[in-house]
Simulated assay, not measured.
Amino acid sequence: MEKMLTGIRSTGTPHLGNILGVIIPSIYMANKNKKHSSFIFIADLHSMVQIDNIKTIQNNTYQIAAAWLAFGLNTDNCLFYRQSDVSLVTELAWYFSCFYPYQRLTLAHAFKKKEIEDKGKISVGLFAYPILMAADILLYNAKIIPVGKDQLQHIEIARRIANYFNKKIGEKLFVLPNAFLQKQNMFVIGTDGKKMSKSQKNYINIFSSDEILKKQIMSIRTDSKSVKENKDPVTDNIISLYSLIATVNEIDMMKKRYIKGGYGYHEAKIALYEYIIHKFSLERKRFFSFMKNKSLLDHILALGAKKAKRIAYERLNYIRKHLKLNSII
């Protein structure tokens, strides 16, 4: 049985790009998979290389958990947990760091980018980030890893580590993970026409208040054509976003209005805003309800961690045995 695993860093409320590109496809996979063959964790330990405020990470964790649950993640079928609640993963990361070549790790994209931008602020955690990610995956022998293109190198590092240990020990101790790139919704544009990103501040947060959500949508960049003029639906940012969530007929209708003229960008933005409010009304209601009941979120994540710990404990003892170390008591 092939296991699927995906991690989400605690960097804030998932935006529309995260929802369409990661959350919805991953939930679909998890809910249709066999029981306990899917692992979805909130990577709060990874987030510490980016955020140094623990309370912020904690609140972000709640927002992420609430968002995934709001979109219908079935926690009876998968393991949904907080990364720091299964600390055994850090022990495995240490074993990997003792064997993986330093020079290879200096080639990691995130490290090289930070080295160029601000070498003085590179932490050991940022440098070793791919090692912990490899441990997240290999601890559970996960095979299918849904990722974006920017994470492909990290999966390759995990594969190299798995190969190294398999050859060193002389048996298939670790399954080689495969990156799973979602064919649809891999690139969701932001309000400026570039890829939607929190760092670029061009995102749409469907879990914002109505007022803030409307403000975000009204900030979508367009050309300067007047209401009367006909417009090109192919190059328009509003239609690009509308096309990701609306039906074929609704998309076609808006495109015809663009081509005909007499339909302004303001009107199109209002249509997009109202469509988001309508389409995600249930998910928004669920999200706000979960955020008012953080003890329930803690309970759900703790149950997932308990299941994950059982598997991690057995796996780590098996790995320890092959490294000639004593078992965990």
Score class of each variant (00 low, 15 high):
L139Q: 11
L138N: 06
I157G: 01
A142F: 01
A108H: 09
K114W: 07
L139E: 15
L173F: 03
V147D: 03
K114G: 09
Y164E: 09
K119R: 04
K149M: 14
L126A: 06
N141Y: 06
I145C: 00
N163Y: 08
Y140H: 12
K113S: 10
L139C: 09
V147E: 08
A162I: 01
A158F: 01
F180K: 02
E171P: 14
Q151D: 11
K114R: 12
Y129T: 01
K121P: 05
K121L: 14
I157M: 05
G125E: 04
I137V: 09
K113I: 11
G170P: 00
K143N: 06
N163K: 13
A110G: 03
L138Q: 10
K149R: 15
Q153N: 04
G170I: 02
I161W: 00
K119L: 03
R160M: 11
I137F: 04
A162G: 09
P177G: 01
V124A: 11
F165Y: 11
A128M: 14
A110N: 14
E156A: 12
Y164S: 13
V124E: 09
K119A: 04
Q182D: 12
I169M: 12
Q103W: 13
A108C: 07
G120V: 01
I169K: 13
D150V: 06
A134R: 01
I157R: 01
K112D: 11
I137P: 02
A142L: 00
H109C: 10
L173D: 10
G125T: 01
R104T: 13
L176N: 09
Q151Y: 09
A110R: 07
M133N: 10
Q151V: 04
L176I: 07
P177T: 00
I131N: 04
F174R: 01
I161K: 00
P146F: 03
Y164N: 15
V124R: 08
D136A: 07
L176M: 14
L139D: 04
G148C: 06
L173M: 06
L176Q: 04
E115W: 15
K114S: 14
R160C: 14
L139T: 09
V175I: 08
Y164T: 05
H109Q: 14
E115V: 07
N163F: 07
R160Q: 15
F174Y: 10
F165W: 14
R159Q: 08
F165D: 05
K168H: 07
